[in-house]
Design a protein around this nucleic acid. Structure first.
Lengths: 417, 417
DNA sequence: TCATTTAGTTCCTTAAGTTAATTAACTAGA
DNA sequence: TCTAGTTAATTAACTTAAGGAACTAAATGA
């Protein structure tokens, strides 16, 4: 039934508690050992031992911040030594692939981008493309002047269906990739753990690590832009489905005859994405094409025909998201992507339709966050998947030792520079 | 982020390996210790120690079955001692609540029903109803002549939204329950672990334990009958959503004006459930009502009008299930419930619509099983949730010690009867 | 100065996986 | 029939990491 769970080995205990302590330090800012023990339900000696490992690797640092009770009165007893994550103890590389280009970002553990580059992705075979990517990554690390032993891994996001567990790009029409073994190739060239994922999941990972999903264990990320995507977070983990194709939300079918880019008719994407809306507007206005921004200006200017199209898009989107609530019952839905610039034009009808479609009180009980769009989110997201892999409880079997194990193991030999 | 994972305590290792070994014995039939060690990636001494615990409690028994290589030629070396689960070492009680009645079933670990009873559920307050249920359960155990120390727990399924983790029935229109603390009440009366769940999830649990989902880690159970329900299995675990309301599939909205029993318009249930179909047929034939069986007979007799209604129901159902494939990407979809008696009348158009709605090759890659309907499935399912709780890896924090821990702990004091 | 309180460490114990050696039970060939 | 070879299962010694008690450190306040 569940052969994926790790067996009970001695190392598992330490791995789990390592992750537990590190996660607490990361989440609860400067914090004392005693407080960690309390929050994590661990024994003080265990915390001491684990923290010592982290201090040795310089992953965690002691601050000389003096305790303050808030009300100004100093508390009794020995002052705690506050610990915080050393954000620059390690770095992660994020790669976002597009149809003809790629963005590379190097971030520290806090998600701060320390280096960024754009490249044109030459039109080669998958294998050549991967070699090119690896070359650009090596170059980025060099130019960013980062000690390569401090790089804990590479996250790479791409459009299409990706088998995360095995690191294989199953099917990507835009890249024209099918069954490409992404991570194994990159790992063997670069010598660091690599993680490949669908691009929407990269964004979702950023939400888990730094965004609105930070405090929430079950939420959905809906991306509206050129296409419509969905990231699913269950129990604090990104859910990817049996073979990695979960969340093809844009190709959910609704009652409509509009032709989608995927070749099918009636996809949500064909009605409610930026591309879908502008195509509908172009057809209505008898134009060969129209930019989404111009289309929205027409709507804002009060063009009834265009308004109706956008409103309908909002309704359809709202109903589809409402159906998601029925299925997933999340605490939170984050809507993001370039499409958020449509604002209330799209989201007022969306909210209405959403409450109508959700079962019982689900529509009112679920928080909805419309998040304005930052272009750097993709890049941070790709890197944050690596950080996330480092922090998550190592409960399931993995292809290889995770970033944290690597980091701790390395400096047993290497010393503490 | 993920405070739900258990901390790394010494007992965790043994708990995890206990579960691992027991699961292997349960799944792989009569099996030797050596083979368990191989499959489970455990050391032989660990297996021996764990198996000894199980033998002491009589949960597992040694058989004198002689090894046979299949080709008749006896193998070299010492013959393995084959182990198998003692199905009657423990019993679980399952309760299925309906609007005005309840079914109680007592099963052994293999899911064999050893006792079964029906009761009318008197129309009382939730608290009185729970007392009544507890009374009937105690009676059932007594009449079934089972040593009460061998009863490992109670599973109770009900229509509506149930918070499984906290054992609370949040909202059940049929029972007129809202915020009822089911398990804590039953546990305190009966003195055994209790688990409350949505009724569809009970069926799904049965599929995991004994059905088509036995070998599959990600699948969906779609129940078609009076209503339409959905059970979601991810990584071998039933997924219940943030507050237990995941899987309100019957109230997913489609393009339709039909009024659903829930008060909303356009629910899938209003179009494609038994009730929905017969209501549509009744309206078309200008009858006040018609039985679903008669309606299907009309269709089989060739009534074009009725055929169109059933066909449309199948299409809508297929499109909705196809959308589920896009979202969950399961390996398998099991369709079950009374509605399966409609046969190809409903499922031929369903299959067609399904393939059209699923993205890319998802429709062809996913197995679809239409499962004929056994009435005892609900009852077995409720009990099997307890068995499932006993077998599953104890990775997450639980309200109290699970059934396996209970069983092993009890007979340290009690001896091995 | 000294009792009190909270933080953090040290040392010993204990549970449970790990390893290697040992015993058990069997087959096949000389 | 004896012996070498092989697989199964157990035993005993070892190791790791959590658990717990005692102890040191550092602060407050009378």
């Amino acid at each position: 039934m569940n052969e994926l769970v790790r067996r009970g080995t001695r190392g598992l205990l330490r791995d789990m508690n390592n992750s537990r302590v590190l996660q607490i330090i990361q989440a609860h800012g400067p914090i004392s050992r005693a407080e960690i023990a309390k929050i994590g339900d661990l024994q003080p000696p265990t915390v001491t031992a684990i923290v010592n490992d982290f201090l040795r690797v310089d992953l965690v640092r002691e601050t000389d911040l003096v305790r303050d009770n808030g009300n100004g009165s100093a508390a009794i007893g020995r002052r705690p030594i506050l610990l915080c994550l050393n954000q620059t103890a390690a770095f992660a590389v994020g790669v976002k692939l597009r149809q003809h280009g790629m963005t590379i970002a190097v971030t520290d553990l806090g998600g701060t981008i320390v280096y960024r580059s754009e490249s044109v992705l030459p039109n080669h075979t998958p294998d050549e493309a991967l070699r090119f990517i690896a070359d650009r990554v090596e170059n980025a690390i060099e130019v960013a002047a980062i000690n390569s032993t401090k790089v804990i891994g590479l996250g790479i996001g791409m459009p299409g269906i990706v088998d995360y567990r095995n690191g294989v790009c199953c099917f990507s029409p835009l890249l024209e990739w099918e069954g490409v073994h992404v991570t194994s190739t990159l790992e063997s060239i670069l010598g660091m753990p690599a993680y490949a994922d669908n691009d929407v999941n990269m964004l979702t990972a950023a939400e888990i690590a730094y965004g609105a999903g930070r405090e929430v264990s079950d939420f959905l990320t809906v991306t509206v832009g050129q296409g419509i995507g969905l990231g699913i977070v269950l129990r604090g983990e990104i859910f990817r489905g049996a073979a990695g194709g979960a969340g093809e939300f844009g190709h959910v079918k609704i009652e409509s005859d509009l032709l989608c880019e995927c070749g099918a008719r009636g996809c949500l994407e064909a009605v409610a994405s930026d591309v879908g809306i502008s195509q509908q507007v172009a057809a209505a206005k008898h134009l060969s094409s129209i930019d989404i921004i111009e289309a929205l200006e027409l709507a804002r200017a009060g063009d009834r025909e265009v308004l109706a199209i956008v409103e309908h898009a909002g309704e359809v989107l709202g109903r589809s998201v409402g159906n998601l609530l029925n299925l997933f019952n999340p605490e939170l839905v984050i809507v993001t992507g370039e499409g958020t610039r449509a604002g209330d034009l799209l989201f007022a009808p969306m909210r209405r339709a959403l409450e109508g479609a959700a079962f019982g009180t689900l529509g009112r009980d679920t928080h909805l966050v419309i998040q304005s769009w930052g272009d750097e989110a993709w890049a941070r997201g790709a890197a944050s998947i690596v950080v996330h892999e480092m922090l998550k409880p190592p409960i399931y079997e993995a292809r290889s030792a995770g970033p944290l194990v690597h980091l701790l193991a390395r400096s047993i030999h290497g010393g503490t520079t």
